[in-house]
Design a protein around this nucleic acid. Structure first.
Lengths: 245, 245
DNA sequence: ACCATGCTTTCAACTGGATTGAATTCCGCC
DNA sequence: GGCGGAATTCAATCCAGTTGAAAGCATGGT
C-alpha cells in the first residue's frame, strides 16, 4: 500500500516487476518532501550536486544558458522522474532546474543511489538501463534538432510527451495538459516563441491538433508518427537480461 | 603488459586506477578482432543488437536517417570507445555504424557486460558513470545544435574532439588529424557541406585554425572555449563515490 | 470593476544558412 | 603522367525562421 503510492515505484514497475523489498527501498527515497512555487529555480548549473530529486507532482525542466542569454531546455520532468541523474557522473551540476508550475519534489542524497547499487542487482540493472535509454532519447531529440523542420519538431515533442505520460497513466488517450509556455517550448526545440505560435496555429488549421486552454488534443497521431518517424523508446526496453533476485 | 596494450584499459584508466584483475577483464573484451574497410557499414539501425564493439584503431560514426534521406550523425567513435552502449537498453539497434577509414573493431557480446556487472563493483560504477557522463555530453551537443551559430558549432566540435583525443594521448597539443569529410561534419552539426566549407574558410581567415591536408591545427583554443562556453566533461568526472575493491 | 502582469498572437522587415549547379582541386590508381 | 571519382570551392538565388515591436487576451490581486 505504501509502495503503490510512490510515483517512482509506479514508473519503474512499468519496466520490470519489483520485489517488495525493492519497492520499499524506492519508496524510501520519496520520504522527504519539498514544495516549490511555479517558476522557482531549485538549483543552478555549477552548484555542487549532492542531491537527486524524485518528482511527486507538477512539471519542471532542466536548462542551460549560453553566456549571452540564449537558452536551451534539455529535459522536461514529469511525476516519477529522477532529476539530476546525469550529473551524478560529474562534480558540479551542469543544468539549472526550474519549476513550470507548483511542484512537489523528494530530494535524496547521491549516497542512497550507492546503497541501491550495492544491495539490489536488479535495481542497478534498471538504473543503468534507464541511463542508457535516456541516451537514446537524447539522440532522438538531437535528430529532431539537427534535421527536422519546425512542424516536425513540435510533432516529435508532443509524441514524446504523450508516450511518457502514458507510462504512469495508461488511461491517457489523445489529450494532454501542456502547462509550458510557448517560449519554453521554443527553448526546448531550438526555435523562437513567435514561430512556435505560428506552427501551432498551422497545425491546428491542418487538423493535427486541437487546443483548448492549456489542454492539447492530438487528432492525427498516426500521421504525426509517420511525419517524424517516431519510435516509442519507453515501450521498447529490453529487460530480458536483468539479474533475478 | 598485455593489459597496457588495450585501448579500452588505457582510456578507462584515465578515470580511475584499475586492479590487475579488472584490467585483464577489460583486455579480454578486445580478444577478438575484425577489420573493416573505409566507408563500410558494420550494422544497421533496426538490427537485433547482440554485440558491442571496442574501437582498436581508426574512426567510425553512428548515424540515423529520416525516411526521406536527411541524415544525423549522432556520435563519432575513436580508439578506446565502446560502440553500441546506449542500445543495450533496447531490443534493436537505433543507429547505423559506419567506418570513416580503415578500422579495427573488437566485438564482444552484451553478456560480457553482464559478467562485469556481477563481478566488479568498481567497473560497474565506472560503466554507469560513463553512461551518465555521455548523457551530459549529448546535452552539450544538444545545446550547440539548438542555440549556436555555424561557427560556434564547428568550434564546439573541434574542442570536443581534441579533448577526447587527449584522454588517450596526452601528447596531443593543438593539432589533430580530421579524417571526416565536410559532408559528414555537416551531418554531425546539422548544417550543409557547403556551409561547413564556408565556415572553415572563414575560421582560417580569422586565425582560429590552420588546415593542412587532413590535419587541423587549433590556433586560438582559448578564444574558441570562450566563444562556445566549453566545458571539458572528460576531465571533470567525479569518481570519489566509487566502491573500492 | 480595475489595473498589473505575463502570455499569445500578429505584423513586417530582415538574415543566416540552405539550395543548386557548375567549376575546381585533390588523390588514388593504372 | 594522365584518368576518374570524390571532395571542395564558388556564385547566385531562395526561404524558413528571426527580430522587435505592438496589439490582443487571460488571470489574478486589491
Amino acid at each position: 500500500m505504501s509502495s503503490t503510492s510512490s510515483c517512482l515505484v509506479t514508473k519503474l514497475s512499468h519496466y520490470v516487476s519489483l520485489s517488495e523489498a525493492d519497492c520499499v527501498r524506492l519508496a524510501t527515497l520519496e520520504k522527504a518532501e519539498r514544495t516549490f512555487d511555479a517558476g522557482h529555480e531549485v538549483y543552478q548549473g555549477g552548484d555542487e550536486n549532492k542531491d537527486l530529486y524524485v518528482v511527486k507532482h507538477g512539471w519542471a525542466f532542466s536548462y542551460t544558458d549560453l553566456p549571452d542569454g540564449r537558452r536551451q531546455i534539455v529535459k522536461i520532468h514529469h511525476p516519477g522522474d529522477i532529476i539530476g541523474f546525469p550529473d551524478v557522473a560529474l562534480k558540479h551540476a551542469t543544468t539549472t532546474l526550474r519549476t513550470v508550475e507548483d511542484v512537489c519534489l523528494c530530494p535524496f542524497p547521491k549516497s542512497s543511489l550507492d546503497e541501491i547499487l550495492r544491495e539490489s542487482p536488479k535495481l542497478s540493472a534498471l538504473l543503468l538501463s534507464i541511463a542508457l535509454r535516456d541516451q537514446v532519447v537524447l539522440i532522438d531529440v538531437l535528430r529532431a534538432m539537427g534535421r527536422m523542420s519546425a512542424q516536425e519538431r513540435v510533432s516529435y515533442m508532443l509524441l514524446d510527451l504523450i508516450s511518457r505520460l502514458r507510462i504512469t497513466n495508461p488511461g491517457i488517450t489523445d489529450t494532454i495538459r501542456l502547462p509550458m509556455t510557448q517560449s519554453q517550448i521554443a527553448d526546448y526545440l531550438g526555435l523562437t516563441n513567435v514561430y512556435i505560435s505560428k506552427t501551432f496555429i498551422r497545425m491546428e488549421e491542418d487538423g493535427y491538433i486541437h487546443r483548448d486552454q492549456n489542454r492539447l488534443q492530438i487528432l492525427r497521431e498516426d500521421a504525426m508518427i509517420e511525419l517524424t518517424d517516431f519510435h516509442d523508446r519507453y515501450a521498447d526496453m529490453d529487460t530480458s537480461w536483468f539479474p533475478q533476485d
